[in-house]
């Protein structure tokens, strides 16, 4: 316990000694984590939007007169893209149409015989599968026509692919840049104290006692940087979605404070872990070359 307070004192000394370098590390880390956070949030939102749209993905094939309803239904149900299928008889369809048309529905009853064919309400697994499914259905001879509203969903789906990829790329960049900066800072810190490290080891300090302040220095910088980034995200994201929602009320955005809080916690954990791992690696490498006996 007492040793730990000595170690904390030394960590403080290291931070003060290289305060400018520390500041640079802090800023770089926080900018990286900030960009990473916002990119990921954006991509998560797009994906959220997509899953909402996908849950309403319906393709509606209309059968030719005289087609065998049960057989065709079986065939379509067996397709992998199909989530569920609900057959609608001409009467069902008419009732649905009437309920949708409200006061004008009496016009329909004037038509006498029901002109609507049998049709299916087919739910599709994902937006990507809509287009191929429609093509297959069109190719079936029992089917007259297919009605679907897939374009928007497909746009959103391809946007989601792009944003997911951007988030992954940003993740890699954040790891690389943050590691590099932390590694360098700690290396300079170690290098400026190599004499002291050798002396401490010579008179009986353990490796862990000597290295812990350096590891803590790196971890602390990355942790503080991530905390700053999370603060910045709160400043940018929360007002941002409020404005979006006022103007585009049909969008469904991630705004659950618990989810966002967990996301921020994850970001801080990510930053701190990265700082810790990098400092450990650089310290281990440096120590073993500094204290090797001649």
């Amino acid at each position: 316990m007492t040793t730990f307070s000595y170690i904390l004192r030394d960590t403080g000394r290291l931070l003060i000694r290289h305060w400018f370098l520390g500041l640079l590390t802090l800023l770089t880390t926080s900018v990286m984590v900030w960009i990473l956070g916002l990119t990921t949030l954006f991509s998560l939102n797009v994906r959220h939007q997509l899953s909402r749209l996908e849950s309403e993905l319906v393709v509606q094939p209309y059968l030719k007169k005289g087609a065998e309803v049960e057989k065709v239904a079986e065939k379509i149900r067996a397709m992998p893209a199909v989530l569920s299928l609900k057959p609608l008889s001409p009467e069902d369809s008419l009732a649905k149409l009437q309920s949708r048309m409200g006061s004008q529905s009496r016009a329909l009853s004037l038509m006498g015989t029901n002109p609507l064919p049998w049709n299916f309400e087919v739910r599709v697994r994902s937006a990507r599968e809509v287009e191929p499914l429609v093509r297959t259905l069109m190719g079936m001879e029992e089917i007259d026509d297919v009605v679907y509203a897939g374009m928007v969903v497909q746009r959103v789906a391809s946007l989601s692919r792009v944003t997911s990829r951007a988030a992954v790329v940003m993740f890699v960049i954040a790891i690389l840049v943050t590691s590099l900066v932390v590694y360098n800072t700690i290396h300079i810190s170690l290098y400026s104290r190599r004499e002291e490290i050798a002396i401490m080891y010579l008179v009986g300090a353990t490796r862990s006692y000597i290295s812990t302040p350096f590891v803590l220095e790196g971890t602390f910088l990355a942790l503080l940087g991530s905390l700053m980034a999370v603060g910045g995200i709160a400043l940018a994201y929360l007002p941002g979605i409020r404005i979006l929602q006022e103007n585009l009320p049909f969008l469904s955005l991630l705004e659950n404070p618990r989810v966002i809080g967990q996301f921020c916690l994850l970001l801080v954990g990510f930053g701190a872990t990265l700082g810790w791992v990098c400092s450990c690696i650089v310290v281990m490498r440096f120590m073993s070359s500094t204290i090797r006996p001649d």
Binding site: Y6, M200, G204
Partner: peptide, 8 residues
């Protein structure tokens, strides 16, 4: 510091 390193 040597004693500190020894947790004295």
């Amino acid at each position: 510091f040597v004693m500190e390193a020894m947790a004295v």
